[in-house]
Amino acid sequence: MLKTLTLGALAWSLQAGAQEALAGARAADEIRLTSVQTGEPETILAEAMTAEGAEACFRTPMSLALLTETYAVYERPAPEPGPGCLDARRLRADLATGTAVAFLSEREVAPGMDRVVAIYPDGRAYAWIQLNEKAGK
């Protein structure tokens, strides 16, 4: 019972914190990735953004080759099903096979949570918030 309550509280906290963390990006139609060189998030080109809950979907004209040389790859992407445009099951499979690449957008957008962005070679891209190692993941 205690474990169920704890997991429920954590899920609520994640959703609430994720929505708050994405609010700024939605308002400005801005997506940022963390630079390998500086360690700081930088705005990338993003078009046709839609956002719902803790998810955002968009397109970028930037090449995957440029992105992987410039921005930090996220080692443990774990998109979860949500109410938005992101198909978590498909995206997980594509990340596992290398069809899409996950990048660190911003670390600790809320306590224990990172913003992650996955990008396909054709420019389709998805952003979400997930628990990080500080949250026990």
Results as ranks from 00 to 15, higher is better:
Ala28Leu: 15
Tyr126Pro: 03
Arg124Thr: 06
Arg115Val: 06
Pro61Thr: 11
Arg124Ala: 10
Ile44Trp: 03
Leu64Asp: 11
Glu30Ala: 15
Met62Arg: 13
Tyr120Trp: 13
Ala46Pro: 00
Thr43Arg: 15
Glu20Arg: 03
Thr43Leu: 12
Gly17Leu: 06
Val36Tyr: 06
Ala135Gly: 05
Pro121Phe: 10
Arg59Tyr: 09
Ala27Phe: 08
Met113Pro: 03
Ala51Thr: 06
Tyr71Val: 06
Ala110Met: 06
Leu95Asp: 07
Glu55Gln: 13
Val101Leu: 05
Ser13Val: 11
Gly82Gln: 12
Thr6Tyr: 14
Ile31Lys: 04
Ala21Thr: 01
Ala93Ile: 02
Ala51Asp: 11
Pro79Ile: 04
Gly17His: 00
Gly24Cys: 10
Leu95Gly: 08
Gly39Met: 13
Glu80Phe: 05
Ile31Glu: 00
Ala100Asn: 05
Glu108His: 12
Leu95Val: 03
Gly84His: 02
Thr43Cys: 09
Gln15Cys: 08
Ser35Phe: 07
Glu80Asn: 05
Ala93Ser: 09
Val73Trp: 03
Glu30Ile: 11
Thr68Trp: 07
Gly8Pro: 02
Ala16Pro: 07
Ala46Gly: 08
Asp114Ser: 03
Leu45Val: 11
Pro111Ile: 01
Ile119Gln: 02
Asp114Thr: 00
Gly24Tyr: 05
Ala93Gly: 06
Tyr120Thr: 02
Glu133Thr: 08
Leu64Glu: 14
Tyr71Thr: 02
Asp122Trp: 12
Ser105Trp: 03
Leu91His: 04
Thr99Gln: 14
Ala96Gln: 11
Leu64Lys: 08
Ala46Asn: 04
Arg59Phe: 10
Met62His: 09
Arg26Tyr: 15
Ala23Phe: 07
Thr38His: 06
Met113Arg: 00
Trp12Gly: 07
Leu22Pro: 04
Glu52Pro: 00
Arg59His: 10
Ala16Gln: 15
Val73Ile: 14
Gln130Ser: 07
Ala118Glu: 08
Arg26Pro: 04
Glu80Pro: 00
Gly82Arg: 01
Ala18Phe: 04
Leu14Ser: 09
Thr38Asn: 08
Val36Lys: 14
Gly112Lys: 00
Leu33Glu: 03
Tyr71Ser: 09
Asp114Arg: 00
Gly8His: 07
Ile31Pro: 01
Glu55Gly: 05
Leu86Thr: 01
Ala51Arg: 00
Ala21Asn: 05
Cys57Tyr: 01
Ala88Met: 08
Tyr126Met: 15
